[in-house]
Design a protein around this nucleic acid. Structure first.
Length: 469
RNA sequence: UCCGGGGUAGCUCAAUCGGCAGAGCAGCGGGCUGUUAACCCGUGUGUUGUGGGUUCGAGUCCCACCCCCGGAGCCA
């Protein structure tokens, strides 16, 4: 073969924006099926991940390795094919590749290869996460995920936000977002002990307890209060024993943080961002979305279109409680002012009450994090964005920029002010109003594809008792 | 972590009241020979999640544990 760098991606062959009918092309990829047809030759369906569709290859019996190799090709085998691109006489595809040379790189023993032509359940695919990107579904998820990541950078870069890398290791153990994974180089079989038997963390790598971060927000605030607008896009970790389709122990989050943004600016940014993402995948992932609409979630296109075109609903927490109290629905949890919104409440608001994304603002201070800006009443300038199907996809707030009020809040939440000396410094020196939010990227991928379980939209998901791959 | 449902052939599943564990798909052999989840004929497949118990006899009933799925909580 010799010229693999010059091969064509199947996407360009099928789109006709590369080689045309009559051209000689080389493609390479994996066999999805082989059909030995009624003319003494074979059809191969070849996919290379560049596009949803596969390319039909016609393999004539005259190929020197037809009997010895081509007839041994089964699903999962890898090949390179050179041939002439011709109009297809059959239905189902406009063009096909009439092979003049087929190089086999690797067979996939059909007795042992876990993927078959039949549909394999998503649960089963999780057990073979290293092979599942070869399936239609997971391949399409990967392309949509990539598009959403690219669109994220474009959105923020176009608006003057600076991409910031915040640390994955942190020593502040009270960012208020659940259990954290501890990071240590201590020998757990022989821990250094102090006088009273407590572990002596002075011996540890950082000289104190350290953890994997649950958020880059606090560090992002530091840069927002210097460079005006920043965003992070990186991994975060939660050691909660969460066993649901909406939680992962490791997930990526996008956290914009902007100086001189109030809560209203923040909510508008969140809405613009979500609309940009849905609009982007509608425009650039048509084939993949059509597959999801056909096999995964028939409402996905309407939902993405609605998000893109219709304004979000904007209500306060207090209004949300009033709506829930008047609702003709039996809720398991109370809907009294002061209690947090439960999943059933969020579902009701986003699906029954409004059937569109809902931004809920101004929650009771007692149920929200210490850094959220105190309003004149007992609420804080927090906001959650709830979307149909997924629930909470964004959580954010205007941050408390007043030194004395922030110090009070730290105290009230039972946190140690000494640990936040540098965070308080940001209010001590040139403080400014600022706001930000976090978007769970996997939840966004789920929302955009209609996939139900976050374990299927992350390449190698980490959940309690699961880190095989 | 709590509640509910599951774990049977490579995959998807069935198995009545406790009574010989069996279908489809895939694989393999043959036929057909421009197919599109190809089709037709033939063919093999088991530590029934693990350990214990009840019983003449357990996939089925009982106990413990492991794992998976869904819901809840925590949250993004």
């Amino acid at each position: 073969m010799g010229h693999l760098m010059e091969r064509h991606l199947i996407k360009h062959v099928l789109d006709g924006d590369g080689p045309g009918v009559g051209d000689t092309v080389t493609v390479a990829g994996w066999v999805r099926t082989r059909r030995d047809s009624k003319g003494g030759f074979s059809f191969l369906e070849l996919h290379d991940g560049s596009v949803f569709r596969s390319l039909q290859v016609v393999a004539p019996a005259e190929l020197p390795n037809y009997h010895s190799e081509v007839l041994r090709l089964t699903i999962g085998s890898s090949v390179a094919v050179t041939g002439e691109l011709v109009e297809s006489p059959g239905a189902g595809q406009a063009v096909e590749l009439r092979a003049s040379e087929i190089t086999v790189y690797g067979y996939a023993d059909p007795e042992a290869y876990p993927l078959q032509k039949k549909r394999t359940s998503l649960e089963r695919l999780r057990e073979i996460a290293h092979l599942r990107p070869r399936t239609n579904t997971i391949g399409a998820v990967a392309r949509v995920r990539n598009a959403l990541a690219y669109a994220t950078h474009r959105f923020y870069q176009e608006r003057g936000f600076l991409y910031l890398h915040t640390p994955m290791i942190t020593t502040s153990d009270a960012e208020g977002s659940g259990e954290m994974f501890q990071v240590t180089t201590l020998d757990l079989e022989a821990l250094p002990r102090g006088a009273e038997g407590a572990v002596d963390y002075d011996e540890d790598f950082f000289g104190r307890r350290a953890y994997l971060t649950v958020s880059g927000q606090l560090e992002a605030e530091s840069y927002a209060l210097a460079l005006d607008r920043v965003y992070t896009f990186g991994p975060t970790f939660r050691a909660e024993n969460s066993n649901t389709r909406r939680h992962l122990a490791e997930f990526w989050m996008i956290e914009p943080e902007a100086a001189f943004f109030d809560l209203d600016d923040n909510a508008r940014l969140a809405e613009d961002y979500l609309k940009y993402l849905t609009g982007y995948v509608l425009e650039h992932c048509e084939e993949d979305l059509a597959f999801f609409a056909r096999w995964i979630d028939e409402g996905v296109l309407d939902r993405l279109t609605a998000v893109t075109e219709r304004p979000f609903e904007r209500i306060t927490y207090t209004e949300a409680i009033e709506i829930l109290q008047k609702a003709d629905a039996a809720f398991e949890f109370p809907t009294t002012w002061g209690s947090d919104l439960q999943s059933e409440h969020e579902v009701y608001l986003a699906e029954q009450a409004f059937d569109r994304p809902v931004v809920v603002t101004d929650y009771p201070a007692d149920i929200k994090a210490f850094y959220m800006r105190r309003n004149d009443d007992d609420t804080v300038a927090a906001m959650d964005v709830l979307v149909p199907g997924v629930g909470e996809i964004i959580g954010g707030s205007q941050r408390e920029e007043r030194l004395d009020v922030l110090a009070d809040a730290i105290e009230r939440h039972g946190l140690d002010p000494d640990l936040y000396w540098w965070y308080l410094d940001l209010r001590r020196f040139g403080t400014a109003p600022h706001s930000g939010f976090g978007l769970g990227f996997a939840r966004m991928v789920a929302f955009a594809t209609g996939m139900q379980n976050l374990r299927d939209v992350v390449p190698f998901p980490r959940t309690p008792r699961n880190a095989e791959f």
